[in-house]
Computed example of a mutant assay.
Amino acid sequence: MKRFYIVGFLALMAFDTLAQISFKVAGEHALPLEFSPAWLLRVFGQPWIYGAFAGYLGAFFTWMTLLQRAPIGPAFAASHLEIVSVLAVSAVFFGEAVGWPQMAGALLILGGIACLAVSEAGEHGARDGRR
């Protein structure tokens, strides 16, 4: 079951990251922003917009599958790992600055997920009589 969670949350993070990065790139290629047929053609003429749709669909089905088995507290927290992964991808591929506030936020997210995972593991141990 532990492998299921690891693979599932990594897949969820990958799909969410794909969606966010794809929207960013598609949006950059669709500038200038205007509501017109020409703008819609620029948006839907970008292959990145379809990467965003694929990412959201993949994330939706992965999330629904995870919710059937994963405890809701850690699952909800881990579903926000894409914030950290998008930060890293944006820094590496787009040269976006990552300062101490972003690093502190990423560490707080990871720490919160770790705390919830440890807490949930402790509760399962107590329920199973291992405490």
Score class of each variant (00 low, 15 high):
E34Q: 01
G105E: 04
K2V: 06
W39E: 13
F9V: 03
Q46C: 09
L31W: 09
L40R: 09
L12H: 03
M64W: 13
V98C: 02
L66H: 00
G122K: 12
R127Y: 07
A19P: 04
P47H: 01
A126H: 06
R130L: 15
G27A: 07
V92A: 15
T62Q: 02
F44T: 06
A30I: 04
G129M: 03
W63I: 12
S36K: 05
I49H: 01
A91M: 10
W48S: 11
R42G: 04
A70K: 01
P101A: 01
A52N: 02
A121D: 11
G122T: 08
I83R: 03
A126P: 05
L67M: 14
Y56D: 11
F23L: 15
A75S: 01
M64L: 14
G122V: 06
G122P: 07
V7P: 07
W39V: 09
Y50P: 00
L31K: 09
Y5K: 05
G73M: 03
G111T: 10
A11K: 01
L33Q: 11
Q68C: 08
L18K: 00
T17M: 01
P74I: 02
L41E: 07
V84Y: 11
A26D: 11
M13V: 11
R42C: 04
E82C: 07
A97W: 13
A38R: 15
I109D: 09
H80P: 05
V98A: 07
L116S: 04
M13W: 08
A14L: 04
A14R: 00
G51E: 12
H29K: 15
A104M: 06
E34I: 00
G58A: 10
V7I: 15
S119D: 15
K24Y: 13
A14E: 05
F9C: 03
W100K: 13
I21D: 07
G51C: 01
E120C: 00
G55I: 10
L33R: 10
G111P: 08
Y50K: 01
L87R: 00
V25D: 13
S119Y: 14
A106C: 08
W63M: 14
Q46R: 13
I72M: 09
F35E: 12
R42E: 04
A26F: 08
R3F: 05
L81S: 14
S119K: 09
A114M: 13
R69I: 12
L31T: 13
V86D: 04
E120D: 11
V43D: 03
G8P: 02
G51S: 06
F53W: 10
L110H: 12
F53T: 10
E34H: 01
A126K: 15
E82Y: 14
A97V: 11
G105F: 09
G55P: 03
M13A: 15
R69G: 06
I72F: 03
A121N: 09
R69K: 14
V7T: 15
L110G: 04
A77R: 00
